[in-house]
Design a protein around this nucleic acid. Structure first.
Lengths: 231, 231
DNA sequence: GAGTGGTCTAGACCACGAG
DNA sequence: TCGTGGTCTAGACCACTCA
């Protein structure tokens, strides 16, 4: 038997998806919804929290609850060095740091090796849609910076293998504010490592995308060699 | 300024991670926690809900709240036809269905084409760790069934390209019960399409994994061709 | 200052699990 | 039957936004 909050959430959900409530519309205030549905405000809030995790509404303290515009899906295309498909603007900030911790492990370099960090944010208009941090050993960085209009670490480098690990988790507070999403929404993360023909790690990248509007697509062509060595 | 529920969650979190509370331990009942922390039960429950979405505790109606054993991570290895890395048991159920809706679109077959559906569940001991549904046009299915001890649709078929789409979302109620996870935990989904040398879709697969204990890893080797045709 | 959502209280009642 | 968590109520008080 469905609970009150579920039936209320379902009702609001259909009102949004059928267009009775349009993107940008403000929902009635929580007390008004409570009297309309004949429940108390905490119950209404639980229903709204559901819709928030689904990405259907956006809550703003002091203003109200708003129907969110359905995000255009972002497709991250794996394998190539090129991160994102649609026409998004990218802002890149470059700094130099010393290798440590997780990043050092990914790049397999000694401690305090100098790295160039590219801090990339893609925007769709005003809205940030992804954040990424790309680390390249500084002796390789000049070549990578050539493609300054595109993303760093692109294909003009001697890249022979790319390994990408995809997982999902709750965002850190910084990621939530950077992507302007609620703390409740999960993010899809891609950890990418690129090797050159000598087996050296020439790039490590950490990408974060809102999981409700992002797909990661990987196309692979098994070689004869892979077919035989796989168990 | 942190809220009460956050400080309580943080306190319990450190008790779990430092080992004061061990996997399998039952937490004090919610009223007892409420009096201990000098808050009301709803506040305790919000703190526990946080830990639940983090996968640290498991709530069982009528029994109590228990510290969850940290799950061994599952690694889904993309590219090959072989789905999972660790030594997991697999249960496979086979049925025949007619193509329709989403599956039909993925396989690019006419409506009502006969398909063999493999419903696969992997277990680590008693615990289900992943569910998958694999669809193969029935005229191709006998070859796939050869590898009955392994997974269906494996590499002995003429598979030249695999395309995998990874995303994350909340589980359907069926998926939550099948994986024995809470409705709040997100799942990682992999939609896989395999093509043969003629360009025919010879397999469509939908995999669902608990996102907190699963990674999807993809290794790609760009060919000269790909380097040039990519924009 | 008026209206909004965010947090929290102190209960009530029901449903589930185990003895 | 008893203790547990699940749901819900009817408020209170604070913080934020905007006029």
């Amino acid at each position: 038997m469905p609970t009150l909050r579920d039936t209320i959430a379902e009702d609001l959900r259909t009102q949004i998806t059928t267009g009775h409530l349009k993107p940008g519309d403000r929902l009635p205030s929580e007390p008004k919804l409570a009297t309309h549905y004949k429940v108390s405000t905490p119950t209404i809030r639980q229903a709204l929290a559901l819709l928030q995790t689904e990405g259907l509404i956006e809550k703003t303290h002091g203003k109200g609850n708003f129907v969110r515009a359905p995000l255009r899906r972002i497709t991250y295309r794996g394998g190539t060095g090129i991160p994102f498909a649609p026409d998004l603007q990218t802002a890149i900030r470059t700094t130099t740091i010393q290798a440590r911790g997780h990043i050092r492990t990914l790049l397999k370099v000694p401690s305090n090796t100098l790295l160039t960090e590219f801090h990339c944010t893609t925007y769709e208009g005003e809205a940030p849609r992804s954040v990424a941090r790309i680390y390249i050993p500084r002796d390789l960085a000049p070549a990578a910076q050539l493609a300054s209009s595109s993303w760093p670490g692109s294909r003009d480098m001697d890249r022979t293998e790319t390994q990408e690990t995809v997982t999902a988790r709750l965002p850190t507070p910084e990621e939530a504010t950077a992507l302007r999403i609620s703390h409740r929404r999960t993010v899809l993360t891609v950890t990418r490592i690129a090797l050159n023909s000598a087996g050296r790690v020439i790039e490590a990248a950490l990408l974060v995308l809102p999981s409700d509007a992002a797909d990661a697509v990987f196309t692979t062509h098994p070689t004869r060699n892979e077919r035989e060595t796989d168990r």
